[in-house]
Design a protein around this nucleic acid. Structure first.
Lengths: 209, 209
DNA sequence: GTCTATACTGAGATAGAC
DNA sequence: GTCTATCTCAGTATAGAC
């Protein structure tokens, strides 16, 4: 049956999202999905490729929406300046919309960004949109030295990863993805201020090189 | 010999720091350390306990220094306000000092925070200092609504995790921990601005509850 | 007290029958 | 397309040598 694939995808997304990739065995996935062990390898090739398939079925939609919003933003701005806020919204709001219909997906994405063992998959689906938003933000913040800007992007991705999956060790904030829109609102507010911070002293040294 | 333990700890820190916990097998560790497979279980009990031992030998020093700095800060401030900048420095500078003498340690810590599969270990060593800094920052930012403040702490930990281990997928920033002091300087600048950002609209709704 | 050799269990992956 | 049997390698446990 063709919905063997779908059953595997759904079970895997739920289990990996809630327990993590390493902690979820393919045997657990197949027993929840009610399919045979070899079905995963027949339909997807490997555990890692299964993960890639879960991402693929949603990520491309989210990224397409991101691109559309960025396109509109840039054409509206013409040669003028881009607003940091608008650029960040173009990046984060499509993810928040995806979370509305499918909370498990955002949880999973956050875990993957955090666990970081899946660079290949993440790079494949997110390199292009990540470069787009990096370029747009760079244009919004022309006065920042290069390294300073790159580090602020890095901080943003770190905060984003934790926001998506929730990590309760320190703050008691867990993996409940209800009201994902609210978190995104808080995150964007935080990031706008961070990006507009004065250049650090390490950044000022950099400028003098 | 007693330095069987040390050889294992050193090899494990290096390998897990550069490849991640799941990707590093105990057989790889023992072959690099030149010891027998069972030595890990004799000296440490399990792979996870080995990791706990690596953290224990450094983390307590770092945390003690953090506590000392926070103590001094609070006694100097008396009943007056605490500076966000000073509190963040008390948190981050001891880690930067540790990185000076032992770059592998910071890399490992960043990976662990990111991978997040080791809640027990992280909680054991960092719950108390994390609560201290949370309290101190809360006192510096009395005007923020509770949830807003908690989320900003969360963003901070996310940015911190990525800063320590470097995640090259998006920004090209890798695991090279030279000039860790410089990163910390940039991070603190970014965070100060983020913490001082105006309350988000989600936060304003929260206040009205 | 330390270390070695080896066996056990469960993981992901694969070949081949149907 | 699906299932069974099997392979390899992981972490773990233990018996016994020094």
């Amino acid at each position: 049956m063709i919905d063997t694939k779908k059953k595997i995808l759904d079970s895997a997304q739920r289990l990996i999202g809630s327990q993590g990739y390493a902690a979820t065995s393919v045997r657990h996935i197949i027993s929840e999905a009610g399919v045979n062990l070899a079905a995963i390898h027949y339909h997807f090739g490997s555990k890692e490729d299964l993960l890639a398939a879960i991402i693929a079925r949603k990520a491309d939609l989210v990224n397409k929406e991101r691109m559309t919003l960025l396109d509109r933003l840039e054409s509206e701005a013409g040669a003028g300046p881009l607003s940091v806020k608008k650029v960040l919204e173009a990046w984060f709001l499509p993810m928040a919309e995806a979370a509305d219909g499918d909370p498990g997906f955002v949880l999973l994405m956050g875990r993957l960004m955090s666990e970081g063992m899946l660079q290949t998959i993440v790079e494949k689906h997110f390199r292009e949109p990540a470069e787009r938003i990096t370029g747009a933000l760079r244009r919004s913040l022309p006065e920042l030295p290069d390294e300073e800007f790159r580090w602020r992007m890095h901080f943003m991705f770190g905060a984003m990863a934790f926001t998506m999956c929730g990590r309760s060790e320190f703050t008691g904030i867990g993996g409940d993805t209800r009201d994902f829109g609210g978190r995104i609102d808080r995150l964007i507010t935080f990031l706008i201020a961070g990006f507009h911070a004065p250049v650090s002293s390490a950044g000022r040294k950099e400028g003098k090189r």
